[in-house]
Amino acid sequence: MSSPQISPELERNLQALVVREARLLDEQRLDEWEALFAEDGRYWLPASLGAKDPLREAAHLYDDRMLRRVHIERLRSAHAHSQQPQGRCHHLLQTPEVLEASPTEDRFRLRTSFIYTELRAGRTISLPGVAHHHLSRSADGFLIVLKRVDLLHAAEPLPAVEFYI
């Protein structure tokens, strides 16, 4: 992929997907959120800086569709003690920047700086980081092939975090 020379309209459409993705998480519309991923799309939260291999390096999450569905199902479970009372999350995003576009304009990578805040049982945690969205164009619009979240605190001890960042 090369550095992008794409139309302002395409840029806006790509950015809109990243913004919508964060909003669906914050509004806990998790089925709609999950549907933004491609069939083989992955969510990756490395536990080190500069991680290269999600399978052979420690990661906080590396979820395929099946595991995302289990996570979502769990958050709704009446047995999820840690969701009593129910928590909430908030993504504060900077403008997503299109870093790469394939020549055929069907693969893209966007970089978005963010602060993730989670409120649970009266306790607030705040985690800054950078999200990398690898998107592909499909018949139904853009889909997430990989969302990689690099936390500033990736390699630090973290408190329990309930939601997808």
């Binding site: 420690a58 990661a59 999450l61 590396y62 999820a80 003690h81 840690s82 049982a121 973290l158 329990a160």
Partner: peptide
Amino acid sequence: ALLYNRQVFSPLSLVAHDDLHL
């Protein structure tokens, strides 16, 4: 082993949440 740690011991894992909360 790394998959097990992600699923069971990660601070974002499926299993550890309820333990840690309690």
